[in-house]
Nucleic acid binder design. Sequence first.
DNA 1: AGATCATGAATGATCGTTCACTTTGACGGC
DNA 2: GCCGTCAAAGTGAACGATCATTCATGATCT
Lengths: 199, 199
Amino acid sequence: MPRSSPAHLAEVRERILAGAERAFRAGGYRGASIPAIAAEAGVSVGLIYRYFRSKEELFLAVCEERTEAQMNELAALLGPMRDTRQRLETAIDFFVRSLAEQGWGAIVIQALAEADRNPRLRDMLIRLTEQERGFAAMFIREAIAGGEISPDVDIEALSLAVAMLLHGAVAHQAERGEAWDPDGVARAISVLLERALGG
Amino acid sequence: MPRSSPAHLAEVRERILAGAERAFRAGGYRGASIPAIAAEAGVSVGLIYRYFRSKEELFLAVCEERTEAQMNELAALLGPMRDTRQRLETAIDFFVRSLAEQGWGAIVIQALAEADRNPRLRDMLIRLTEQERGFAAMFIREAIAGGEISPDVDIEALSLAVAMLLHGAVAHQAERGEAWDPDGVARAISVLLERALGG
DNA sequence: AGATCATGAATGATCGTTCACTTTGACGGC
DNA sequence: GCCGTCAAAGTGAACGATCATTCATGATCT
């Protein structure tokens, strides 16, 4: 492959992103040094700065591309489904499973820890939360339409609570590390949501 | 006050802890340097190492003493109360209010971000979660005793969900920063919990 | 040949920690 | 009551390591 083809450039960029993700997950945002990221990605230190303006920009790119991919995947998964109960179970299962398999929860926690000093990271996290609230509000409206819960429920408050519950699961994984129990977390979310959304 | 009296030593230790808490909150665990902490506390760099063996130990002390104080305060607050509904409202209000006023949520997020590389921080966080689960399980058992929810509910799963919800609120505060809405968060938690614990 | 991709040593700043040093105050002999 | 002594409290410059970023140089393509 020619070194200057667009495909090659995209591949190098993706290799840097993948190496950076591993390094950030292992050492945290501050703890992952540029030399360490370069070694993990198999490129030189200088090359990283041809693809990203700074470490901050690189971390932002990792966060955005990964969370966006997760959200798109979930939306595609739910698209053809019709039954509300099945959709809810699928969404919870997807969330917990991708948390377990991809381990992107650690990245979100790192972003949270830096959000206080980085407006762009904060904006990214707020967009993520709003997307989760959007999913939650959709399920709530379906439950209302299905007559499972009262139409005068506070959708704003309830969808915020659901989004916070999901972020709590992310925090729980960060807290437990290797020893976390995806099935237990999925069961916990299901029990609470099915009680609240009418089971 | 004599420089070598126990009271003076305790006061200096507390001043270092308070300065460190401010510095950690402003800059994060990694971002708060020992010189910055020393300046914030009004002591010299060297003195910090007379009271704490390392930066890690200092951060651990900040986390433990603050979270322990919060938990004791909540337990004392709930102690004399009898009515379950009132106890639940008090607990939620205390949690959200202390999150808003003390701003200790940012410290917890920093601890979460470091837990992967620090077993003692992880243990501290796990103990905190287990205490929150203990409170949650207490409320669930009261709701069962009061006949508000079925006796065959999965207490383990439900109490875990409640603890995750609370940690989600901590994450939400870290995400929103100065712009967060304590009343909205309290309403969200109340709506979800009262629906789930029988309202 | 010229343009772009890629390298990694060099730079200046900053970090956590140490330690030689000064200041303070409790105490025993007078 | 006074003073000399000494352990402990407190200081901050110095140290070696490491950081994010740059740039002079080389490699590879058109």
